[in-house]
Amino acid sequence: MNPLLQLKNVRKDIGKKTIIHDLSLEVFPGEVFGFLGPNGAGKTTTIRMIVGLMGITSGEVLINGISIQKDFEKAIQHVGAIVENPEMYKFLTGYQNLLHYARMTKGVTKERINEVVKLVGLEKRIHDKVKTYSLGMRQRLGLAQALLHRPSLLILDEPTNGLDPAGIREIRDYLRKLAKEEGLGIIVSSHLLSEMEMMCDRFAIIQHGRLVGIESVQELSKQAQKVLLTVEPVEQALTVIKNIYPHMNITPAKQGIEVSIDYKEIPSLNAALVSENIKVYGIQVLTKSLEERFLEMTGGNEIA
């Protein structure tokens, strides 16, 4: 599959300072790709370079194989984006705002505008002035303008900011649907790590303008598992486990015992405990969360 977006050794200098160091990554059709990083890591700068708002000092950004620096108009026509907050013309209505952006791309009909309005659930308020909108409604309008021209690459900076839990879920499901069913490539950045985990297929962790790593959510859940056992009496259980698995990494926790164990071994461990008359109240599989992985990779920097 050809990548929708390619960043090749992208570098940005401002004055003598290097803001982004030789960033390379690829985003493919049908995937939701997350940008993660602490404040000031360079997420937004990277997004601005991808959409041509900022110049690139060296390296290359290719969208559908077309260079954004060399052929901006051609490269950008398949991109829909929200950069930072969805700022709209407040003195215009939501509909007039969409009309404004529709006129800037060929082939967006009135029907398409109505379709998108319905999609983001703004039918009732679309003819009101934007200054009367809540942040959540502006976010929806922002999404609508990004989708108007049926882009193949969607870039959303904090798309769920300002939405209520139902709205977040709705947008998340919709984005996943766009990626799966229509094969869009979607880039999202968010500081809500748990949300990213639910939304993204892969994500890049960026810190100090450098790519720390690209992880896939699937791989993350396959990593060495920890199991939390809620047992009684604890002391006796510890001896039993040590007898069977002498090399196992065991940590007594508040709620019980935490052990690192292969998924397939869990039933036999349970059987052993039961046969020794230990009461087993619960076995809980602990997957490594994105947050833990993130903190591990960025060295525990604060997440904004």
Binding site: E73, V83, E84, E87, M88, Y89, Y101, M104, T105
Partner: peptide, 14 residues
């Protein structure tokens, strides 16, 4: 000052 410049300049118009 409105911040709308960002959405204005990411269209296929130079």
């Amino acid at each position: 000052s409105w911040g709308t410049i960002k959405l204005l300049l990411i269209r296929p118009a130079s």
